[in-house]
Structures are given as C-alpha cells and as structure tokens.
C-alpha cells in the first residue's frame, strides 16, 4: 500500500495505482481531467496531457519534487508522494495551454455536432480553457467518411486519443483501422476504404471523447439533452445486454452502453466492462426489444446539462489581448 496526498487529501491505495486512479478514489475537485486515458483499455493514456499534475514530493524515500509536470494517468503513486492539481496555479496555466492546443485545430462546430452536450472536450474547454482563440490560421480539415454502415468518422474533430484504436485492438477480433501519417497530419483511418465491421465495433463510438465517431443511426435525429436516458436490458447472446436507451416519448432514438461519471462504460455486476454489441446498439430500436429498469443515473456535469451558460473568465489572465487577424499568404494559399 502507498499513502499519497493530492491537493491536501490523503488516501492509501494499493501499489501500482496511478495518481489519476488515486484521485478518482478521492473524487470531486482533485480529479484531473482525462481525455485519452480510459481505465478499461490497457495502455491507454499519456497522449493528450490534460491530466498533468505537479508532484511536489516524489516519495518518502526520495522527497525531491519531480522536475516537470507528469501525466497522472500513467504515473504510479509512491508511498509519501504529494501531488498538486487544482491547488497549483502554474499547473492550471499549463493545463489551459494543453486545452488551447487541443482546440486550435478543432472545428468548434458544436452547434451541428451530435456529441454536443456530452462532449468531454466541450466540458474541458469550458472548465479549463480560454474564452477566445489566439489561433488565426486556417484549421486542419479532413473528409468525413463512413467506416461501415453504422459509424461515421469525422476526423476533423478528432483529438487523437487513440481510444478507438485500442478498442479495435483489445475487444474486437481484427483491427482494420489505425493511425496513419505522422505529426499534425496524423489521422484515424482504414487507409483504403474499408468497413469496420465487427460485433463490438460500435463501442468505438462510446469511447470517443469528442464527436469524431458518431452513430449513423442517430445522426442529426436529436440533441442529446432532448432525449431521456433510461436503463434497460435484454437477454443478448453476444454481450451483457445492459444498455441505456435514449428516448423521446416511447420512441428509442439511440442505444449506448451505460456510463459512469467519467463517461466510461460501467462494469456489469460480474465486474467486467459493460461493452455492448452492435446488434443491441444499432438494431434494437423498439421499446418491445427491451426491459426497462428505470431512469438512468447519469452524472450531469456536462456543460449543457448544467445550464452553465454564463462564461467565467479563467483565474489566470490570458497573456495577450486579442491580436488583429491578418490574412497571410499562408492562409490564402490554403484557401486555394
């Protein structure tokens, strides 16, 4: 066991626990945001850098602070470690920087995005970002593609969290999509047009933190806050059959896995991750297919469900005033 203190809260956790997991055990404000880590996917995390924390004391044995902020999702705790998340202003500033990086090439098309209202990036930007952009160049764009009959890939929105690749690797049999190219032109793709077809491929939609992978059977049907989630189950030969139905009146608009407060799929009672199969997700769209358990308890921390419409300025002051936008030949060239 190891004792770790995060923002002044002490907790004792098993060896090998990461700082992020320890913070989640404490709960509340001390939990750093995580855009790429997904506790149910092995080797996930480390990429997005939103979960950075400051380690002010390495351990009881070696109390030196760590020289740089570390990714809490991939750093194991040490006995006696002391960590700052919300209590370190310089860390919050660094995190705001990460959020800005994630947003500069994001299309900010929330008004037409199916994920709006349950988008981790929207929440993150709201809680940790600036209220304006300092980026004045044309944004990166990609063609939208259908990967299979039921899934839409809108790469322009992707933040390269690698979660969907890990789903394909770890819970489907045979990965046909992956990350191509490198640097800021990296993209999720099948390379040559290929359907991602597999009983469990739909779970890629559930793990996607943004609106890059969406359910084609639900596309543009409704805003998520206009449909009501209810827990339901069916006897499914392929998966646990435990789902959330998103309903308007008696109509089932979409089916997803049940999720916890970190937007991860909930475990089933036997302790396994509650991934659902494509039949449950895409084909069972009638109430008669399901036995309803009651309204879902979902964590309504997302921007829109909280009616947080008032903009709050971040605690730290942005360095610059809005600078004048001048079209450069760079942008002009990009328009061609």
């Amino acid at each position: 066991m190891a004792k770790v203190t995060i923002d002044g809260h002490m907790i004792e956790v098993p060896d090998g626990t990461t700082i992020l997991q320890a913070a989640r055990m404490i709960g509340g404000d001390v939990v750093p945001p995580a855009m790429c880590y997904y506790s149910k996917l092995k080797t996930s995390g480390g990429y997005c850098r939103t979960c950075l924390v400051k380690v002010t004391k390495g351990s009881e044995k070696d109390p030196r602070p760590m020289p740089k902020p570390v990714a809490s999702c991939r750093t194991p705790v040490m006995d006696g470690m002391e960590v700052q998340n919300k209590t370190a202003p310089d860390l919050l500033e660094a995190r705001a920087g990460v959020v800005e990086f994630l947003l500069i090439n994001h299309p900010l098309d929330c008004p037409i995005c199916d994920q709006a209202g349950e988008c981790s990036l929207q929440d993150l930007a709201y809680e940790h970002g600036l209220s304006r952009t300092r980026y004045e160049f044309s944004r990166r764009t990609f063609q939208k593609i259908d990967i299979g009959e039921k899934i839409k890939l809108h790469m322009t929105r992707c933040i390269l969290c690698y979660r969907c690749v890990k789903v394909a690797e770890q819970i489907t049999d045979g990965r046909v999509h992956g990350v191509l190219n490198r640097g800021d032109v990296s993209e999720i793709s099948t390379y040559i047009s290929q359907a991602v077809d597999n009983d469990f491929s739909g779970n890629m939609i559930d793990v996607c933190p943004v609106g890059a992978l969406t359910d084609r059977t639900f596309r543009f049907k409704s805003r998520v806050w206009n449909v009501n989630p209810v827990d339901a189950h069916r006897d499914c030969p392929t998966c646990s059959g435990r789902v959330m139905l998103w309903m308007k009146g008696a109509e089932v608009f979409r089916v997803t896995a049940r999720k916890d407060e970190y937007a991860e799929v909930l475990d089933t009672p036997d302790g396994k991750p509650g991934w659902i199969c494509n039949t449950c997700r895409f084909d069972k769209k009638e109430t008669k297919d399901w036995i309803v358990d009651g309204p879902s308890k979902i964590d309504r921390h997302s921007v829109i469900s909280q009616n947080h419409y008032v903009l709050q300025e971040p605690a730290h002051k942005p360095l610059l005033n809005a600078v004048q936008a001048v079209p450069t030949s760079w942008q002009l060239e990009n328009k061609k």
Binding site: G174, R175, V176, H177, G178, V179, L180, N181, R182, T190, Y191, I192
Partner: peptide
Amino acid sequence: QSIEVYEVASF
C-alpha cells in the same frame, strides 16, 4: 494485418 503495414509505411 494490412493496417499494421499502412500505419508504418505512412509514418
């Protein structure tokens, strides 16, 4: 898998 080759070749 073919995708493993595409991923590497494009990097």
